[in-house]
């Protein structure tokens, strides 16, 4: 313990709360509060109502929720498959090739997502692949964006995996494919689910690339929130945002349940 005197400790905590509460806790509370209100021009919101939620769980918003969920699930699964495969393949490569592959896979982290959106738009608006205006263009962009994260966490986990397991399995007569399926993947399962959760959350909240790409019939939640706030419907926007956060949290919670089961088996 760094601070020993009681008074000093309280002082430190007070500073912490003063910094922490308005910056981090307040925004979320405010969004939550606003989603139940019709007016907010004083300290507390007024005109409490649940009407926004009725709007936010019906029609356009409900469709956007489904869109987001489908996009995020597809993109995370695609990203997880590619990322894991690439991480496994990279581990089997020579050092120099491995570095090149790693660099290639982390590049989407550094490239602005708006640019990824623009690039996807430019590439798939012309032959040979005409995908502009379809939902696939959104899903492809999301997959590209989150693959980098999946690859990073899987390859980090792979590097931590003790080679003794693989070798013990091989010495017992297991072929490399059998080792991968029965030993490596089960041992990586906690990291894989963590990566899936991360990808899902990122894809759920992805706005920048989506803004460049979305077709009218495939509007994910963030775009809907933006559209709502842009036309001044802040309170409806908040309600949709709360729906978005709740959906993300529920999925993350489910994923972490799976993970706990996997790691404590």
């Amino acid at each position: 313990m760094l601070v020993h005197s009681r008074g000093a400790r309280w002082a430190v905590w007070a500073v912490f709360l003063v910094l922490f509460l308005p910056l981090f806790a307040l925004p979320l509370l405010v969004v939550l509060g606003a989603s139940f209100a019709t007016h907010w021009s004083s300290v507390l919101p007024s005109g409490l109502t649940t009407a926004h939620y009725e709007a936010a769980t019906r029609g356009e918003a409900l469709q956007a929720l489904t869109t987001s969920l489908v996009t995020a699930t597809t993109a995370s699964l695609l990203a997880l498959a590619t990322g894991t495969w690439a991480a496994l393949a990279a581990a089997a490569l020579k050092r120099r090739h491995r570095k090149a592959l790693d660099a290639l896979f982390v590049l989407p982290l550094a490239v602005p997502s708006v640019v990824v959106g623009l690039a996807t738009l430019v590439a798939f608006s012309q032959p040979p692949m005409l995908l502009n205006g379809t939902r696939w263009i959104v899903i492809i962009a999301h997959s590209v964006l989150v693959t980098a994260f999946a690859h990073q966490s899987v390859s980090a986990a792979l590097a931590r995996l003790d080679p003794a397991y693989e070798q013990a399995a091989a010495s017992l007569g297991a072929t490399p494919a059998y080792v991968l399926w029965r030993v490596k993947l089960p041992l990586l399962l906690p990291s894989l689910t963590a990566a899936a959760g991360l990808c899902f959350a990122l894809s759920m909240g992805e706005l920048s690339a989506t803004m460049m790409l979305y077709p009218p019939d495939w509007t994910p939640l963030p775009v809907l929130i933006y559209a709502a706030t842009d036309r001044g419907a802040l309170f409806t926007g908040s309600a949709v945002a709360v729906v978005l956060m709740t959906a993300t949290l529920l999925v993350l919670l489910a994923v972490s349940r799976i993970r706990t089961r996997a790691s404590y088996r």
């Binding site: 003794a164 399995a169 091989a170 490399p176």
Partner: peptide
């Protein structure tokens, strides 16, 4: 020959039992 075709048994210092 690759390890899995040698037909040996091996025990290492840190056991390497499969935890799952």
């Amino acid at each position: 020959l690759p390890p899995h075709r040698r037909g040996i048994g091996m025990v290492v210092q840190q056991y390497a039992l499969f935890p799952h």
